[in-house]
Design a protein around this nucleic acid. Structure first.
Length: 320
DNA sequence: AACGGACCCAACCGCGCTCTT
DNA sequence: AAAGAGCGCGGTTGGGTCCGT
């Protein structure tokens, strides 16, 4: 309401975060917990606006987030959820607890959008010229499904809350990683950040901290400290129930994978990231057995042009 | 080796919602 | 009830990296 953007203030630094700044921010959050972002720059001496601190934390520093290397399963989920929910990245991210909305958004814009377009082109050039078709179809599908889905969203989110808890242990490891790594600025570039990535994604023993560690649908995941501490054991609803909730007729195309749900529900004592990466082909196979994949998903999973001719002969899935 | 375009993603921007005063 | 503050979300951009020529 007429107030200047906080980042316009004189002396506020912009641009890539340095490792030193990251350490300051993480140390502060480790001590005080995420939230009250307004006071973070003041209390830490960081020359960053509160918003920038929050984004840095939620999109990069927050423990338990997985970055890069989207699995075919995740791709499929994003595609389905995007068709269902539109560009509600925060909502979509709430179904992929290890992913941030920003990450998903970027992945959609840089990879999936292109893939889908390519797919549409391959299927029917005329369809592409009338690009609204897909949206109309998607929307009707979306409208039809939304009612059912919304009824279950709150339950699901309760289950996923554990993954959102931050971890002091993770933060410590993160700090260790930085301390060990060269002080040479990595400026967050992708090639250099891989060590960080693995250190954060591999350490999923979430046990502390409140709630809005993630801007992504923070509210649904909010839970208090006591609750978080119980989460390693919490099974608000069983996996079977969870899966049955998700197998609403056509929605079962969103092949919620038990193992990934498990890692979420169990407070992630395993390293789902590695598992995810290692077992991709096996998972794809399982997914195909588990639930019928949409044509597009199949194409994305196979990602081999050799399959195209074969698929061109198959009828369109209900979604597209 | 040098150049330039394409690609990718972290970070920024602006809007809108909610909560507080 | 109105105004201000704080925060979250979605869209966009800037700049580093990759890759082909």
């Amino acid at each position: 309401m007429g107030r200047p953007p906080c980042c316009d203030k004189v002396g506020i630094k912009k641009g890539p975060w340095t490792p030193e700044e990251d350490i300051i921010l993480v140390s502060y959050i480790q001590e005080h917990g995420p939230g009250n972002w307004r006071s973070v720059p003041t209390n830490t001496g960081l020359l960053r606006c509160s918003k920038s601190c929050r984004l840095r934390w939620t999109n990069y520093l927050r423990p338990g987030i997985k970055r890069g290397n989207f699995t075919p399963h995740e791709e499929g989920m994003i595609i389905h959820l995007q068709a269902l929910l539109g560009n509600k990245w925060a909502a979509i991210a709430s179904y992929l607890p290890q992913r941030t909305d920003n990450d998903i958004k970027n992945y959609w814009n840089t990879h999936l959008k292109k893939k889908i377009k390519k797919f549409q082109t391959a299927l029917d050039p005329q369809l592409v010229s009338n690009s609204t078709n897909r949206h109309l179809v998607s929307k009707s599908y979306s409208d039809k499904r939304n009612l059912d889905i919304n009824n279950h969203v709150s339950l699901l989110r309760l289950n996923q809350s554990s993954t959102y808890a931050s971890s002091t242990e993770n933060i410590s490891r993160l700090l260790e990683g930085w301390m060990r790594s060269s002080p040479k600025s990595n400026n967050g570039r992708k090639d250099q950040e891989k060590p960080h990535q693995s250190s954060s994604s591999n350490s999923n023993t979430n046990k502390n901290n409140n709630s809005n560690s993630n801007s992504v649908a923070a509210a649904p995941f909010q839970c208090n400290q006591a609750k978080v501490e119980q989460e390693n054991n919490c099974d608000i609803i069983s996996h079977e129930e969870l899966e049955s909730l998700l197998s609403l007729d056509n929605l079962n195309n969103i092949s919620w994978e038990k193992s990934s749900c498990d890692s979420t529900l169990q407070g992630s004592q395993t390293t789902p990231t590695d598992e995810t990466l290692d077992c991709t082909s096996e998972r794809v196979q399982r997914l195909e057995n588990q639930a019928p994949l949409s044509l597009l998903e199949k194409w994305l999973l196979d990602d081999s042009t050799g399959q195209m001719e074969e698929m061109m002969e198959v009828e369109l899935s209900p979604i597209f």
